[in-house]
Design a binder for these strands. Structure first.
Length: 585
DNA sequence: GCCGTTTTCGGCCCGACTGTTTTCAGTCG
């Protein structure tokens, strides 16, 4: 069964139902089902067999029946019914900005527009037909033209590192403005999601300064277009591709606005539900008492902590705000002490000039020392990666000797001679066991045949985990964000095997990889598997690739990882003991 | 369609901005 396809199916059903004007809460249910299926790390078929699907939040009787139907027949009758009522391409119109379900319905019924291509054709040749529809006009047509173009050229989500770079530029421009009291990054960037749809910046300032701050924001050099600009809110496009929003609120509302605009939406909806139970109302201006349906006294709002406290919750780190159990944990005082960047004691995945790295062995040791690390591992590529200059067994052993020789000059550092050894297609390793046995640290990693799905991909990793010389699996799925989906594996089996075998799973910190991803980390933590967070550095210097550690730490935090779960947050002695228990006796 | 320390029925988050309007509907986050 394909989870991604099932999730898309539920999403498309929601779109079609929305166009048909069906009950909006029912539509929300289908969107929830889509998200839960997409994010689930559980084996849905096993859950289905056990009659346990309804234990998933947001999955009830009706959705369970539809999942069962999908497993058995590969389709859902209700989906087919919807497709019979609405042209399937119509849902594609909803991807456009300024075009929602009502407009899509109107375009179809009045002008027989059935797809994005149809819409483009009419916009190009007969725009007056759209302009003359009730509720439409010249400006609306111009907006649609623009978003039809934008959707092909520059839509979608942007990598977190790219988003943070743009955010920093915007922040410094706004910060320089007089009258800015507080400034913070909000949205999914503050939550450190792996991709960001748009950048949200929040400022507190007096009313008199708001207009000037807006102006500073929209006149930033990199701003290529202003989408909207009101009294308190301004939306722009930066570098022709990334949307950024600025909101200005009063000081008394800054915490409420920060909470509100940080999201996620699901987290906020749950918080609002708690407020309602108390007879209060929560919005971006504060937490308010309500009297006879009217907004009463503000009881919190200046800072986030106050809002969570009033609602009976511990303050929730932004990385956890996805409504994946953090609210229950915050209510019970059981939020984990999340891993922090300062906990990291070393980096165990990096390359040198021996293969495709840019620094020498000593460059990398010096760089790690400058990072304040206590240990590192040099892990160059194996022979099946000829494009990287992968090492033959003989070259590998010579390289290991060179690493150990260099390490003698650094008695304060633990330097491990290692490898990033290919996991071949059948799950065997690129070096024989007797070669691997001579190393201090063996990272095994899949590099080729990365579009494998199902049991074969899972078995491949399980076989690598079973090798007694392997200490950790690097970038286990091989996905590249926005470029390659990677292997679809049964993550729960992988985590189980890793936990039992004492093999760590890497959270590759490169913002192109972030592999394991957040929900996989959460599955690993739950299974008791240990993690190792590494940068896969190919350049030396504390400002080079080694500095990417923060993305890995953030991803681990999003998966609820504590320092105890992460072997390179441990002291050197404990790490050594962990690695040595793998040695076959 | 889901869900339940007020509920198995009756709720389900809330406000800003825009365009086409003349008090509001649609879209967005």
């Amino acid at each position: 069964m394909n989870k991604t396809l099932l999730a898309e199916l539920f999403g498309q059903m929601a779109d079609l139902m929305e166009i048909l004007g069906e009950d909006r809460f029912r539509v929300i249910s289908y969107r929830t089902a889509s998200r839960v299926v997409a994010e689930s790390t559980a084996d849905l078929e096993a859950l289905a067999k056990a009659g346990q699907l309804q234990t998933l939040p947001g999955i009830g009787k009706s959705t369970e029946a539809k999942i069962l139907e999908y497993i058995q027949t590969g389709q859902i009758a209700r989906h087919q019914e919807l497709l019979a009522k609405v042209p399937p391409g119509l849902a594609g119109l909803l991807r456009l900005q300024h075009l929602g379900p009502k407009t899509a319905l109107k375009l179809w019924k009045e002008l027989d527009i059935r797809s994005l291509d149809d819409l483009r054709e009419v916009l190009a040749n007969h725009p007056e037909r759209i302009e003359d529809l009730p509720g439409m006009g010249a400006k609306k047509v111009a907006l649609l033209k623009e978003s039809a173009e934008f959707t092909t050229s520059a839509s979608g989500r942007h990598r977190i590192d790219e988003a943070l770079e743009i955010a920093a530029m915007l922040e410094s421009a706004v910060k320089a403005c007089k009258g800015v009291d507080e400034l913070a990054l909000a949205g999914s960037a503050r939550r450190w999601r792996e991709t960001v749809g748009d950048i949200d910046i929040l400022v507190s300032a007096g009313q008199k300064s708001a207009a000037r701050i807006m102006e500073a924001f929209r006149s930033c050099q990199a701003v290529t277009k202003v989408l909207a600009g009101g009294q308190t809110k301004c939306s722009v496009i930066v570098n022709g591709k990334v949307q950024a929003d600025l909101r200005v609120v009063g000081k008394e509302s800054f915490g409420a606005a920060l909470q509100y605009f940080t999201g996620s939406k699901d987290h906020n909806v749950a918080l609002r539900g708690i407020a309602i139970k108390h007879g209060w109302k929560l919005n971006e201006y504060g937490l308010f008492e309500e009297k006879e349906g009217k907004q009463g006294r503000r009881i919190a709002g200046a800072d986030e902590e106050g809002i969570y406290r009033k609602l009976g919750l511990a303050w929730v780190p932004p990385e956890l705000r996805e409504n994946r159990g953090e609210i229950e944990a915050a209510a019970a005082g059981k939020l984990p002490r999340l891993l922090e960047e300062a906990d990291i004691q070393g980096d165990l995945h990096m390359h040198t000039t021996a293969t495709d790295g840019a620094g020498s062995i000593t460059d990398m040791i010096e760089s790690c020392r400058a990072m304040g690390y206590k240990y590192l591992a040099i892990t160059d590529h194996s022979r099946s990666q000829p494009q990287t200059g992968g090492l033959s067994p003989k070259a590998l052993l010579e390289h290991a000797a060179a690493v150990r020789a260099a390490a003698k000059d650094y008695p304060d550092m633990l330097v491990l001679a290692g490898t990033e050894c290919d996991i071949l297609k059948d799950g065997t390793l690129d070096y024989p066991d007797d070669v691997l046995a001579k190393l201090d640290f063996v990272l095994a990693a899949p590099h080729a045949a990365l579009n494998a799905k199902g049991p074969a991909a899972t078995e491949r990793l399980l076989r690598a985990i079973a090798n007694p010389h392997v200490h950790a699996i690097a970038h286990p799925t091989g996905r590249l964000i926005n470029e390659r989906a990677g292997m679809e594996v049964d993550i729960q089996r992988i985590c189980q095997a890793a936990a039992e075998g004492g093999v760590a799973l890497e959270v590759n910190a490169h913002p192109l990889r972030l592999d394991l991803r957040d929900v996989h980390v959460q599955a690993a933590v739950k299974a008791g598997a240990k993690l190792v967070i590494c940068t896969d550095a190919h350049t030396p210097g504390p400002a080079g690739d080694l500095a990417l550690m923060r993305y890995g730490v953030a991803t681990a935090r999003r998966g609820w990882a504590t320092p105890d779960d992460v072997i390179n947050a441990w002291p050197a002695g404990k790490l050594r003991a962990f690695l040595q228990q793998r040695r076959p006796r």
